[in-house]
């Protein structure tokens, strides 16, 4: 496979995530779109690591080509922690204002 195919796929997924964040007003959907963007980046990291594995420089040296996959693993770890805190914030917000519409959250006071 060409690396450009993977770049194009990741770009499309990432842009769908951005459009979702901009268009939707529901805080939970916006959070889902952020997760989609994280996954697009993860996919691109893995594709680049496999591209690096084919290069002659990687075969000549003893460099491990799977470092990017460790990176992706840590991105998933941080995302899991982020989701738990973010959902707690959304639940707290819903308990106070009884909505998840971000249009009603444009002020920091009250």
């Amino acid at each position: 496979m060409d690396i450009k195919a993977y770049i194009a796929l990741s770009l499309v997924l990432f842009t769908i995530g951005i459009v979702g964040v901009l268009v939707r007003r529901n805080a939970i959907i916006i959070f889902l779109c952020v997760e989609l963007m994280l996954n697009a980046v993860n996919l691109l990291l893995v594709a680049f690591s496999k591209m690096h594995a084919l290069s002659p420089a990687a075969k000549a040296s003893a460099n491990f080509a799977g470092d990017a996959q460790i990176f992706v693993f840590f991105i998933m770890v941080v995302a899991a922690a982020e989701v738990s805190v973010g959902l707690a914030i959304i639940v707290m917000m819903f308990r106070n204002v009884h909505t998840v519409d971000i249009n009603f959250l444009n002020r920091l006071k009250n």
Partner: peptide
């Protein structure tokens, strides 16, 4: 406005990445 912004961003990113002259393959 959101859809226009996203479409413009996608167009820009695709144009930029198409200018790359790497013809690397991915190991599958």
């Amino acid at each position: 406005v959101g859809i226009c912004t996203g479409g413009t961003l996608l167009l820009l990113l695709v144009l930029i990445t198409n200018r790359m002259d790497v013809e690397q393959l991915v190991e599958t």
